[in-house]
Design a protein around this nucleic acid. Structure first.
Lengths: 147, 147
DNA sequence: TTTTATTAGTTGCATTTGTAACTGTTCATT
DNA sequence: AATGAACAGTTACAAATGCAACTAATAAAA
């Protein structure tokens, strides 16, 4: 016999948040997947390096909360496409400085346009009010310390 | 040379939404993972069956947007724990009606309490205003037709 | 009634991901 | 210097996932 106090999954906030994120994310993945065959970690590394010209793999991980193996594999793939280059730090040879090549920059700029228009559509559909409110809620969640 | 119109990933709405969802979801997964060793699909099937006492695997998939193989495997696992039972439809023997056993109900009720208090903490941290606004934005996203 | 198409659910295989162990390097302590 | 701890990044292995092919059953069409 089910208890009337039992959880209703479909109105459970973590569930709803996750499904919404996945829906948006899946739709957006078409942008980087279809045209260039990138996966999400690769897209992220590309975007982060475009914004911060010289980073180490560890820093990219901190930035994006991606596990270092994900970053490592994404970097490997992007390097083999010649979208980014590595250079060993002169003073600490454990460290590799990563930066996009000209080709990588160009590819990213192309994707950037598509990403912006995807986001614009999303914001359009939400409306300016909801967009602001959603962003505010996301700020709070980002700032939260969860167990 | 990076273009100034290029995307800033850290403020890109799909990215922010995804990270927030993953953060919350990862934190919540402790609830069903630590105590019972469930994974997300299993947790979901459990919660859906608790709310809708008799469903087929296909219906669970529609409900939760999970792929049928995920549902199939989750059902298998829950059945082998004796948390749910299957019964063939009398008129169409392709169809299996699933329902929680008493044990499954009990387990879910226990998890339900934890889930509710997790959600309560989340809502507490967001504040009532932001919670409402977030829910409204999620409504809109759920209703969206994305490419 | 035989054939064909459709549906419910499962399974095999390839891909992705996470964990832990590993290599190579630097730093800290002695 | 020599030893041990810490760190950057890679790799090997195991678990999770998605896709496509599969089985079994029913429905639709011929």
């Amino acid at each position: 016999m089910s208890q009337k106090e039992d959880l209703i999954l479909s109105s459970f906030l973590p569930y709803r948040l996750y499904n919404a994120a996945e829906k948006v994310s899946l739709s957006f993945s078409n942008v980087y997947k279809d045209k260039h065959g990138l996966n999400r970690p690769e897209w992220r590394v590309l975007a982060i390096l475009a914004q911060h010209p010289k980073l180490t793999a560890t820093e990219i991980g901190l930035h994006s909360k991606m596990h270092k193996t994900k970053v490592s594999r994404a970097v490997f793939e992007l390097e083999s496409r010649k979208w980014l280059s590595r250079r060993l730090d002169e003073h600490d040879r454990r460290v590799e400085w990563l930066q996009l090549t000209k080709l990588g920059q160009t590819r990213f700029s192309g994707l950037s346009v598509l990403a912006r228009s995807f986001e614009a559509e999303l914001i359009e559909a939400l409306g300016p009010q909801s967009t602001k409110q959603l962003a505010a809620a996301l700020d709070k969640i980002e700032a939260m310390k969860l167990p």
